[in-house]
Amino acid sequence: MSMRNAVEALFGIIPVLDQIKQSIEQTTGAIPRASIQLNNVTQATEMATVEILNVLDRMTGRIEVAEGAIQRLRQGPANTAESLEAISQALADTRQDSMNIAMALQVQDITSQQIAGVSHMIETVRSQLLEALGQLEPGQRSPAGPSPGEATAFDGNASFTGSTERQENADAIIKQWNKADNE
């Protein structure tokens, strides 16, 4: 190869290397975002788990109250009304608590959307890296393959929080909307 050919080949490689550099920079930027998102999943599951454990603690306390009331009923007719009221209250509170546990399980839907977001991010990174590799070895590029997140619809910003702020904001917008609509 002549010196001239070698220089031309080098000039041809430079844009390819530039594109590869850009791809690597873009994909590197996605990694911290994926890490933050996975951290959100951990936080959400922990928050929901603690919430459920707190409810279970309260339920255990109520079962003890009901058991005490049943014990008093077995001992004799004294304080029957009071004991029945205690049992009735414990049952009503337990029903409410079981609802609270069900509500905390919404974490499953929310974290599955967060994980789908991470999965999508990883798939994007994989595609970009394959693209970069394909530029180095045009004939050797592996097929992209099916994306695991293709059939999933998700909200990448889904979050599990005990705060009512987002609902209050939505309510305020709806209120304004309806007011404007009625005027």
Binding site: M103, Q106, D109, I110, F160, T161
Partner: peptide, 12 residues
């Protein structure tokens, strides 16, 4: 007609 943000409460 209306809009609820997850996670919601039974009361909500």
């Amino acid at each position: 007609n209306n809009y609820i943000v997850k996670p919601f409460t039974a009361q909500g």
